[in-house]
Design a protein around this nucleic acid. Structure first.
Length: 490
RNA sequence: GGCGCAUUCGUCUAGGGGUUUAGGACACCUCCCUCUCAAGGAGGAGAUCACCGGUUCGAAUCCGGUAUGCGCUACCA
């Protein structure tokens, strides 16, 4: 009764882990950490045909990135090793064998072609597709006939023809299905590998899994699993099916929805802590107002009872907002550390490497509260590093101003700045503010022009701070370049 | 086609018979702050709780049906 919690994340390396997979991992991890249980990673690599090279690494990298550490599984081992299903084939074979000898399963010699034709015919006649059980009651003679033809059979489960199967899900409650809707599904494929259903049941039992937390799409196959547990004489773990995560078009997440692989979010500059927070709130909530929760707070408050039953749409806007919140909450040093690799990688090649740490350290505080992702840092900070600014010269002409007046204003600014001994925020403000008045310009007009001249953009961090970081020399040469641009404009 | 599940602002959600003129967040709009942007502050708009019936003194909340959506229906997981 009071047995310890053992949960598992059981991904299949048939692709790269998307946010849905990772959300499942997160909930398993949270539940394990909350209850003081064990979090296990098991690789379900039974689909030889669809296996993707590097898939396992991508999954483990994703978990590591989000700091979802596992107690048993690849790399760390454990008492129930191995944790790759491809290394446990003997277990499944034995189970299948046992079911056959018990009369709960049978060999099926039907060819894939026959099955396909049968299915096409069923669909055509609007009949529910499903195996027609042709091999269910083969005689010994018929079987040995097939064997001598050299056909490698699959093993199918002998599903009950009548009655009902019901089960209880921690999230969905009681679900009942008619056994007549369950067909004789395959347990062991002809290549000797098990299907998901068999491998899953055998492993969850042999690894003493107490709770199965997995995606909602598995809900319809629970009756099959329950039947299998019964036939094998195993106790079924507790079940909790998690609501799905959908794309903006309400369809299951797919490649069309932009970044789907969790690794992709990492390269786009999302913070792992923001990702964890965001994912946790997809299908789970603490209360009616709390949005920002640290990993510790999530662990402390996580509960199965508060998981919802409705599918959630992955809302990138909200993720961006949340990521911005986390970026702003970073210490300046931390922000700098995390930004550095992005700057190094994304800044144009003409920018000298290694980047000057001192300079980066001055720039970053101006960027921190404006970036929503680390990838945006480069974009926002680019003008600090680049030598040549590229912009539309018309931007240099302030609101309600002419080319001539703009030129005059810039020249006046150039003049004042060149005389400045100390080039810092306060001293800049002290000369530039009065200058606007002298020229009869609004501060917005003058500062706007200088901003474009010095940054090449109309929106940038506060002017004086920006100029101070840029330094006198760079500012003056940029103003000179701006005047030249203005001159060419005619 | 069959089976299963779901349905509260555009989105994530709170709420589980009276405390709700349905609360919060993102996005959107307005204003404030202000040299622009961002952040921040103050407001606004946005949901007859899918629909129809029923139970009840009273329903977003309970029950039934309908609609819609999604999932499953593979020698994929």
């Amino acid at each position: 009764m009071n047995q310890s919690v053992r949960v598992r994340f059981a991904p299949s390396p048939t692709g790269f882990p998307h946010v849905g997979n990772i959300r499942t991992a997160l909930f398993n991890w949270l539940f394990a950490r909350r209850t003081g249980g064990t979090f296990i990673v098991r690789i379900e690599d039974t689909d030889v045909a669809r296996k993707v090279e590097g898939g396992v690494e991508a999954i483990l990298d994703g978990l590591r990135w989000l700091e979802l550490d596992w107690d048993e599984g690849p790399e760390v081992g454990g008492n129930y090793a191995p944790y790759f299903q491809s290394q446990r084939l003997e277990l499944y074979r034995e189970a299948a064998q046992r079911l056959v000898s018990q009369g709960d399963a049978y060999y099926c010699y039907c060819s894939p072609q026959r099955l396909e034709e049968m299915r096409a015919e069923q669909v055509k006649r609007k009949k529910p597709p499903g195996y027609d059980r042709q091999c269910r009651d083969l005689s010994i003679a018929e079987r040995s006939q097939k064997e001598t033809e050299g056909i490698t059979p699959v093993v199918r489960f002998k599903a009950p023809l009548e009655g009902q199967t019901s089960f209880n899900d921690l999230i969905w409650g009681e679900v009942v299905v008619e056994n007549s809707t369950i067909d004789d599904f395959i347990l062991l494929k002809s290549d000797g590998y098990p299907t998901y259903h068999l491998a899953n049941v055998v492993d969850d039992h042999s690894m003493a899994i107490s709770h199965v937390l997995r995606a909602e799409e598995w809900l319809p196959s629970v009756p099959r699993h329950k039947l299998l547990y019964q036939a094998l004489g195993y106790e079924m773990p507790q079940l909790a099916h998690l609501p799905m995560i959908l794309g903006p078009d309400r369809a299951k997440l797919s490649k069309r929805h932009g970044a789907v692989s969790i690794n992709e979010y990492q390269v786009q500059g999302y913070l792992p802590e923001a990702m964890v927070n965001f994912l946790a709130l997809l299908g789970w909530s603490l209360d009616d107002k709390t949005e920002i929760l640290s990993q510790q707070e999530l662990v402390k408050n996580f509960s199965l009872e508060r998981i919802s039953r409705t599918a959630a749409i992955f809302n990138t806007d909200k993720l961006n907002w949340m990521n911005g919140v986390y970026i702003r909450s970073l210490s300046p040093e931390d922000f700098e550390q995390r930004s550095l690799p992005f700057l190094d990688k994304e800044l144009p090649p003409e920018v000298k490497r290694p980047l000057s740490i001192d300079y980066v350290r001055q720039v970053m505080p101006l960027i921190q509260e404006r970036a929503r992702t680390l990838a945006e840092v480069t974009e926002l900070a680019q003008f600090f590093f680049v030598t040549e600014l590229d912009y539309d010269a018309n931007w240099l002409i302030g609101k309600d101003m002419s080319r001539e007046s703009a030129t005059k204003a810039l020249e006046a600014g150039q003049q004042k700045l060149s005389q400045l001994k100390v080039f810092h925020e306060a001293s800049l403000e002290n000369v530039l503010r009065p200058l606007a008045e002298e020229l009869g310009l609004k501060t917005g007009q003058l500062f706007g022009m200088l901003r474009v001249a010095v940054t090449g953009r109309t929106a940038a961090p506060p002017l004086f701070q920006t100029m101070a970081v840029l330094g006198k020399e760079r500012c003056l040469s940029r103003i000179k370049a701006a005047l030249a641009k203005l001159h060419e404009l005619s």
